[in-house]
């Protein structure tokens, strides 16, 4: 068991490149245990890249990512495998395995990480599907589910091993307002029932304000602000204000740079 003083997630000076382009500029972020942290930002802000680093899917240029006190940029494959047991992820499109039924999807983490017998695995998979209100759908294939059901099935798979850390990529993307609110409720209920730390990456303001304990606003690879919902709402940072009021970005135009962009590599 991890002692309660250790933060669930600690990112220190994380720098990431995509080819030559710098995506994340020395990001520092901490998520306390039991906290719901929302990472907010427009497209191209680097929030998806940041999530991939948190999940150990990308290798950073420099800096470290500590999950439950373990630096995932340095631990061995064996230690990472053990840590994966403490993590659940719900991807944007669900990312359910299309060749397996819903129940098989939920059962896969149990099969890979436990030595439970087949009946126990089936029962546990059904229990997780009950939690997300998908009882009776276990034999359907992912292609037979609606968008909202897909997300809930993905959530059931993410919590299959009762993780300490839960990650969501754009939970409300592609959902109608009602299904989106229902999913937000589900996230809040889960946090209350199981006490895990949750990181949600989203660009939906409403859902962010509803579920967040704290919000980190990311813009072009920099953290603009980390704070409570009130702090973000009350911020007078021009980029945050324009994000909240859905105004288009207005950048100062530098005449010389503009001309140079248009005429580069000619002559």
């Amino acid at each position: 068991m991890v002692s309660p003083e250790i933060p669930a997630i600690e990112i220190i000076k994380l720098v990431s490149h995509y080819g030559e382009r710098k995506i994340l500029h020395e990001i520092d972020m901490t998520v306390a245990q039991g906290e719901i942290m929302v990472i907010m930002g427009g497209s191209g802000s680097g929030k998806s890249t940041l999530l991939r680093h948190l999940l150990g899917l990308n290798r950073p240029t420099s800096g470290s990512v500590k999950l439950l006190g373990q630096d995932i940029t340095r631990i061995t494959a064996q230690e990472m495998f053990a840590l994966r047991r403490q993590m659940g992820v719900s991807f944007q499109g669900g990312a359910l395995f299309n060749s397996m039924s819903v129940a098989e999807n939920v059962a896969l983490p149990l099969r890979e990480h436990t030595e439970l017998d087949e009946n126990t695995i089936q029962i546990m998979a059904r229990m997780k599907l009950e939690v997300v209100n998908l009882n009776g759908f276990e034999d359907l294939m992912p292609s037979e589910l609606s968008g909202g059901m897909l997300k809930r099935a993905a959530l059931a798979r993410a919590i299959a091993l009762d993780p300490r850390l839960l990650f969501f990529d754009e939970p409300s993307a592609g959902l109608d307002p009602v299904a989106s609110v229902e999913l937000d409720e589900l996230i809040l209920n889960l946090q209350e029932a199981m006490g895990m730390s949750i990181v949600v990456v989203t660009h939906e303001l409403e859902s962010a304000f509803k579920i967040a304990d704290r919000i980190t606003v990311l813009d072009q690879g920099h953290i603009l602000l980390t704070g409570t919902v009130e702090e973000v709402r009350g911020s007078d940072h021009p980029r945050i204000v324009s994000l909240l009021q859905r105004q288009p970005r207005r950048e100062e135009i530098d005449g010389d740079a503009y001309l140079q962009r248009l005429t580069r590599e000619l002559a």
């Binding site: 991939r52 999940l55 990472m80 994966r84 993590m87 992820v89 299309n98 896969l108």
Partner: peptide, 17 residues
């Protein structure tokens, strides 16, 4: 290829597979 596009490969990796 389809699994890569639909993030199923990522999902496998985060499950530890």
């Amino acid at each position: 290829g389809t699994m890569t596009v639909s993030q199923e490969i990522d999902a496998l990796r985060v499950i530890g597979v």
